[in-house]
């Protein structure tokens, strides 16, 4: 039976989340920033599944399902915004969006 303790999964999830957070801050390519957001969502999903298993409660699986649906919607709208930005600025550099920059 389960030989891997819960905290291993949660710490792995923490590492993935930190990688995603650093990726969003460090990268300037809008698409790479989106992928880093996906990594963070995956990290949260992993923690949910792990807690779900150890609490013996399947509600976490439903929550992960909903998170994935939101991720799909977010990716569709986000990539459409990237396309619109590319049309307007000929670039996917986040720095090119400086109209509202103070």
């Amino acid at each position: 039976m389960m030989t891997v303790p819960l905290d291993y999964y949660i710490i792995l999830s923490a590492f993935l989340f930190a990688i995603g957070a650093i990726g969003v801050v460090v990268s300037r390519n809008l698409i790479v920033m989106f992928m880093a957001v996906e990594i963070m969502l995956n990290a949260a999903n992993l923690a949910l599944i792990a807690f779900s298993r150890f609490l013996k409660l399947m509600d976490g699986h439903v929550f992960v399902f909903l998170v994935m649906t939101v991720a799909a919607a977010e990716a569709a709208v986000g990539l459409a915004i990237v396309i619109a930005v590319f049309r307007a600025r000929e670039s996917v550099n986040a720095d090119s969006l400086n109209l509202m920059k103070w």
Binding site: P5, D7, I11, F17, F51, F54, L55
Partner: peptide
């Protein structure tokens, strides 16, 4: 952020049951 998350995660121990 990572150190903080790991520190909090350390407390998350639950017995594995069937």
């Amino acid at each position: 952020l990572l150190a903080e998350l790991v520190w909090v995660s350390m407390a998350a121990s639950m017995p594995a049951s069937g």
